[in-house]
Design a protein around this nucleic acid. Structure first.
Length: 467
RNA sequence: GGUCCCGUCGUCCAGAGGCCUAGGACGCCGGCCUUUCAAGCCGGAAACGCCGGUUCGAAUCCGGUCGGGACUGCCA
């Protein structure tokens, strides 16, 4: 995998990395991560660290590459600038490449001409009659046979030499282009498989030709379909987050993200949607990757995240969610509060899709709400007989000696019958009184966790609000 | 404009000539459960872009057409 540190890790790149990792693991191969930072202007070490951190968060440990080392040197292209330049000059000497000092205007004219004649610029960007001794270095495209290769996901592909231009491999300032650096690295690092985005498909014949000129072995290519928004448009901010980090911050689990990214363009069979990392490794093959561009659907990701949350061990869930609860409160949890929280954690776990949601669900336990939720009040507290219900509820539990869920429940359950009303008419007002909202975790457990004193206070508060 | 890629429910995936009156998942609609919200369970609507051809038979093969996309840089 060869990310360019010019921005945060895009979900599309993350998926490409994931597929590379799966393929390597499935075949017992080596997963390599190198940094393609030939664009010195835009590359930063901050982005590099962010990207590597995201890989690790997803669980994509690499066997060789930056930070972990390996037999091939630095794994960072900016460290190898001189080496690439040397190889480029060598290609000039061997006749595979040439210096070109034509101006941007001259080149533009050639392109214009090509386009007006309905031809590829490749037909015109060719070695000039008179060689230059400076400028950029271009690879000379042999004009005989078409370049053919078998792409693991696309199948057999063929490009006519006339449609490939003599592309720049070394800039006039002596730095390599992406094409040169990545091809040299693929050769020297003995890369056997290159799985990357479909946007690089048109560059592949160039890379193959360069590989041959360098005398290297051609890797096997696999071009992955691109990712889109659910509206079929290029994935952008408009569709939500495009950076993996944002999902991490929003409370998505790495396991869910892993599963979702994997399912976006591949599946182990026609039925399974949720599967473990191990199952994916066992069944993954690039050959089975879909050719169609996939739409990134945050809604399905959220559902999947909920599935993973529910599958978690409850104590693990509680620990994981604790920081989110504390963030919601803006303070740390006291130990008795933590205890109250772990008590209702299993109930919260069932109704959480995103970690931060858990915080708002239990907020009422640790903090007196500023006001009753307006809609909830309107819906349940303005009905006839609410005050009576609250009064009954209050006295039913006011003198309970044992304060736990079964006792609270037993006491409160007697009310509907006594008053001759439905359960809903009894418990909804109590819910609003105690939690401030008509939507909350289960009532008896909530009351039990809240404690006797505070429960009574809140009922009184609602009662006084009713007048 | 040119080169290349892609085309099954709104979305993701399955389907590699008859097992397809096209299957699974998200979402959506309805129901059950139920003190709310979830979860769970049951049911439903929803697709092979179009036209030809090959074949006894096509979602699957071929051609064309239409549509979408990528690339066309001294960015990657």
């Amino acid at each position: 995998m060869a990310p360019s540190p010019t921005g945060f890790l895009h979900v599309g790149t993350a998926r490409a990395a994931l597929y590379n990792w799966l393929y390597a693991r499935h075949n017992g191969g080596t997963f390599i991560v190198r940094i393609d930072d030939t664009d010195l202007e835009r590359s930063t070490t901050e982005f590099e660290e962010e990207i590597l951190g995201s890989f690790r968060w997803l669980g994509l440990e690499w066997d060789e590459g930056v930070e972990v080392g390996g037999p091939h040197g630095s794994y960072r292209q900016s460290d190898r600038i001189d080496h690439y330049a040397e190889l480029a000059r060598g290609l000039v000497e061997s006749g595979h490449a040439y210096y070109d000092d034509r101006s941007a205007e001259q080149l533009e004219e050639l392109r214009q001409r090509a386009q007006s004649e309905g031809k590829h610029p490749g037909h015109y960007i060719r070695r000039p009659e008179v060689g230059a001794g400076s400028g950029v270095i271009r690879l000379s495209i042999p004009s005989n046979d078409p370049v053919e290769f078998d792409d693991l996901v696309r199948g057999h592909l063929s490009f006519a030499p006339g449609d490939i231009d003599d592309f720049v491999i070394l800039r006039s300032n002596g730095t390599p282009t992406y094409h040169l650096a990545s091809t040299v690295d693929d050769v020297e690092y003995e890369i056997t498989h290159v799985a990357r985005g479909e946007d690089l498909l048109p560059s592949t014949p160039k890379h193959i030709l360069l590989t041959r000129a360098l005398g290297g072995a051609e890797p096997i290519y696999a071009h992955l379909p691109l990712l889109f928004g659910t509206d079929g448009k290029k994935l952008s901010k408009r569709h939500g987050a495009t950076a993996l980090t944002e999902y991490r911050q929003q409370g998505f689990l790495p396991s869910a993200m892993f599963n979702y990214l994997a399912i976006l363009g591949w599946s182990p069979d026609g039925e399974t949607t949720i599967f473990s990392r191990e199952e994916a490794v066992e069944k993954f093959d690039l050959v089975n990757v879909s050719k169609n561009p996939a739409a990134f659907d945050p809604e399905k990701l959220a559902w999947m995240n909920g599935e993973y949350i529910r599958a978690m061990d409850t104590s693990a869930f509680a620990s994981l969610v604790r920081p989110h609860v504390e963030a919601e409160l803006g303070r740390a949890l006291e130990s008795d509060e933590w205890q109250a929280f772990t008590y209702i954690a299993p109930l919260v776990q069932e109704r959480t899709r995103l970690l931060p949601e858990a915080g708002s669900q239990v907020r009422f336990l640790f903090e007196d709400f500023e006001a009753f939720d307006e809609q909830s009040w309107e819906k349940v507290m303005t009905k006839e007989g609410v005050a009576d219900v609250l009064g009954e509820g209050r006295s039913a539990i006011a003198h309970l000696d044992t304060w736990d869920t079964p006792s609270v429940e037993a006491a409160l359950r007697a009310i509907p019958e006594k008053l001759g009303i439905g359960a809903g008419k009894t418990f909804q007002p109590l819910r609003v009184a105690v939690t401030g909202s008509s939507v909350s975790p289960p009532l008896f457990e909530s009351i039990s966790a809240l404690g006797q004193e505070r429960t009574l206070e809140r009922i009184d508060r609602a009662l006084s609000e009713l007048g």
